[in-house]
């Protein structure tokens, strides 16, 4: 029994419409669950609040990359045109900051963009080949007309019967247990 509950990924339930999804999400959140997620074919305004999601950390990752690009670019040009191989270009100083600005700007933007894209991959746990939820035939509707909520078994408050009851109480349908394989 215990081994079986360990391999359980979570409990998936379907609701009728976006309004119900927001209601059930806030009910689950109020119930003290933290490891759960909602799935819908389109973004729903107010869902972040209902799930009480924190602000994404992505901005800080981008900022870090941007600053790294700026400092890295500066060090690179400094090494090349001042320290290692200074060239006299039309009498301008070696430390020719205005002329460096386009390169510093581009490197800041480039690394920020890398930070944004790969940081987003990292925070979303991408890339991955499969996900336990794909084992549910019903879940295919999530990209079309289905609204789903899944409470994961990793949640410290997770209890199979209680979760089942909570979801049923809020009008969820097609409640099913999801296993990784």
């Amino acid at each position: 029994m215990s081994t079986e509950s360990k391999s359980l990924y979570g409990i998936l339930a379907e609701v009728k419409n976006p309004k119900k999804l927001i209601d059930i999400a806030s009910a689950v959140e109020r119930g003290g669950y933290r490891k759960f997620d909602t799935f819908s074919p389109f973004p729903i305004h107010g869902m972040d609040k209902a799930m009480s999601l924190k602000k994404s950390k992505l901005g800080w990752i981008v900022l870090g990359h941007g600053i790294a690009g700026l400092i890295g670019g500066f060090s690179m040009i400094y090494f090349m045109s001042v320290a290692d191989y200074p060239l006299n270009i039309s009498g301008k100083p070696f430390m020719n900051i205005p002329a460096w600005v386009p390169i510093l700007f581009e490197l800041t933007v480039l690394l920020s963009a890398f930070g944004a894209v790969f940081g987003m991959f990292f925070l979303n746990g991408l890339p991955r080949l499969n996900h336990p939820l794909f084992n549910s035939e019903n879940f295919k509707k999530a990209t079309d007309n289905g609204f789903f909520i899944c409470i994961e078994s990793e949640d410290p408050k997770f209890d199979r019967t209680e979760v089942q009851k909570l979801l049923e109480d809020h009008g969820a349908e097609n409640i099913e247990e999801i296993y990784p394989d």
Binding site: S90, K92, P98, A99, V101, P102
Partner: peptide, 12 residues
Amino acid sequence: AFSQFLLIYYAN
């Protein structure tokens, strides 16, 4: 503003 400055500064 910087583009205006840079081109003039660089062409000298």
